[in-house]
């Protein structure tokens, strides 16, 4: 089910999703109409534009909240034109899984789009890589990430993208053991208990940053 006020984009997305084998059960120009239809016919995932009529502020998040209340099983995928940290942080803190935040640019990579939609549908959390980069390179003076070394920050960036330790090791030309050491060090520095699944760790990092 889709909700976006930009007709061209919405219809293109619906067509491509259909071609990819998704069943698009409804297309709406605003969040309220979609919410009204979600109850009768809950989809696996609702794809929502973050800014929609009437206010073009955060109607997508409001709609997501209504959907979660009405039909908790529906995965929520928010699409945004800009990387907006404050919205993403709100989303991640407010919703415990089954939620995603992607830039509209990302949607054109159909493999990513398909994978992330399925991820959200089964209760996963999806964060746009650009957002992660923004968070990681975020240069607030009181930033706990300031305590990390450049190398650790690079590891965290990759980790936040969902890379495994092995993949990080390959990307950064490091031994897996070294990467593991960096990860442990990151968790220690950020006061996070190790052992969670990786997107959970990202979530924890996001929450920590918000505080």
């Amino acid at each position: 089910m889709l909700a976006d006020d930009a007709v061209l984009f919405r219809e293109g997305l619906a067509r491509i999703l259909t071609e990819m084998g998704f069943d698009v059960t409804g297309q709406y120009a605003d969040g309220d109409t979609l919410v009204a239809n979600v109850r009768d016919n809950p989809p696996d995932v609702a794809v929502l534009d973050l800014r929609m009529p009437p206010g073009f502020a955060d109607e997508g998040i409001a709609a997501a909240r209504a959907i979660r209340a009405a039909a908790p099983s529906v995965g929520l995928m928010l699409l945004s034109q800009y990387v907006e940290v404050h919205h993403a942080l709100r989303l991640m803190t407010e919703f415990d899984g089954g939620v995603g935040y992607l830039l509209k640019d990302r949607v054109s990579d159909l493999n990513v789009l398909g994978a992330e939609l399925r991820n959200v549908a089964i209760g996963g959390t999806v964060i746009d890589p650009d957002l992660v980069v923004r968070l990681v390179t975020r240069r607030r003076e009181d930033d706990p990430l300031g305590r990390l070394t450049d190398r650790e920050r690079a590891v965290l960036a990759l980790m936040a993208r969902g890379h495994s330790n092995t993949a990080i090791a390959t990307d950064l030309y490091l031994a897996v053991k070294t990467v593991e050491a960096h990860v442990t060090s990151i968790f220690t520095k950020l006061d996070l208990a190790p052992g969670d699944r990786e997107h959970r760790r990202v979530l924890a990092v996001l929450r920590f940053l918000r505080a």
Partner: peptide, 15 residues
């Protein structure tokens, strides 16, 4: 919006 839609089409083409 138009550019993003076209990018989506190109993605579909590539696929």
């Amino acid at each position: 919006q138009r550019l993003v839609t076209v990018a989506m089409e190109l993605g579909a083409l590539a696929k």
